[in-house]
Amino acid sequence: MKHAMKPAAFLAALLLAGPALAQTKAAPSWGPGADDAAFTRMLAASFKDKGIARIDRLTQDETQAFCSDPEAAASPNAAETRQRIEAANMATVKWPSDGKWLGDWKEGEKIAQSGRGNTWTDKPGEPNGGNCYNCHQISPAEISYGTIGPSLLQYGALRGGDEETMKAAWAKIYNAKSLNACSNMPRAGHMGILAETQIKHLMALLFDPASPVNVKTGPVK
């Protein structure tokens, strides 16, 4: 990581990240006042390093640049680019090193609950949380859940546990953009938010028959 990037180098990096930006240039969904030059100038003048949150976080990779114009990214003529981006993200997925998919669902519940990590008020070094409950319903007992993502209640019970299903869920958690280029879900493994063992614990939360996620509770409301 280029920590102490000077504004000039930072600007150059942003402009170099340009090929993806250039693709959406045909018809950006914002007006001409926000052309690349003006926008880049604004970014460079508006942010500063704070704690672990450095200005190099504003430098986009291709996925982020593509998804920053949601209208263009969702248009029919961007279908090929979406597929290419999904494939590139799929290629980043590291599968479990010992071939085992599941860890301990109790640990998984803790990781799903925790939203700590990566803000400028967080200290480096401590393990990050998964933020999962911020966006998903997961265990039925936890009623303080967000709705940006779908409910994961009964996840394993509904899907079974064959190799293909496990693979898809692992890929989703490791790199959510591998299955949906502009998913709102973070790329937990790819971005180094969660480690392999943490992902296994989350997999157990979703798939272990003993996990509260899969316990039969009568008709789901």
Binding site: S29, R57, T63, Q64, C67, S68, N118, K177, G192
Partner: peptide, 10 residues
Amino acid sequence: MFYYQGGPYD
């Protein structure tokens, strides 16, 4: 700016 993605969580 409203749609600009960045950082470790995109």
